[in-house]
Amino acid sequence: MTDFQKPASGQVLVKAEGVRKSYGQLEVLKGIDLEVRTGEVFCLVGPSGSGKSTFLRCINHLEKINAGRLSVDGNLVGYREKGGRLYELKDSEVALQRRDIGMVFQRFNLFPHMTALENIIEAPVQVKGTARAAAKERARELLARVGLADKADSYPAQLSGGQQQRVAIARALAMEPKLMLFDEPTSALDPELVGDVLDVMRQLAQDGMTMIVVTHEMAFAREVGDALVFMDGGVVVESGHPRDVLTNPQHDRTKAFLSRVL
């Protein structure tokens, strides 16, 4: 543990009120309420199929919500409110919102036809219009930060899973997001590679990045997390400080889940 102390409570960055999402007949999110504050590491845990990924994908509008309110930094995700009515944003406006939100996927989703460096500079160059040389310099810094300074010219297929995931984190960071979403970033990795990725995330948390992390790594949640939500069946069952929820769960469903994963 570190004695590093984060700002006690920043302003609310992500706010969900009664967020619902259905796929056809299947209601996956049944009214989610939560707040994520600036600088916080917010952990989302729960059994498979509870809607964790779905909720995460709603935050950067990879999925459209059916009801409720979801805002990032005071702006509704995917909509504009005018005169009491909601207007859908155009694709280009959605893309603009997404620039500030980094996402890291379970299966990395690196672009296989590009080297690590090219993966990282793609969005800054194509979306922000950063000059290639400047973007490359920044990409090398980021690669060094995730401990892969020597892998700039490797293709994803030439990297281990843990290395790929660290490149994916660097790729998301290259857009200088205010918020990072992690969807089970270590669950596709061999056990011995998990540590490297968690180290990078721990460092990122210390640097003050706001992070929403879906994870089954309870030790990480307890050590690094500032808040934790336990979801089941599309609702928030229990929330609080990770220490409290993990060591002293109040709800039976939480207890049952934790007894299985801890």
């Binding site: 893309a95 620039r99 996402m103 979306v127």
Partner: peptide, 24 residues
């Protein structure tokens, strides 16, 4: 996942197609 990753980075539909999907 490729289109998702590209969209999550803020790439437009057209750029996602041209830079990410078509080359693959």
């Amino acid at each position: 996942g490729q289109a998702e990753a590209a969209h999550a980075l803020g790439l437009s539909r057209a750029k996602t197609m041209r830079r990410i999907i078509l080359p693959q």
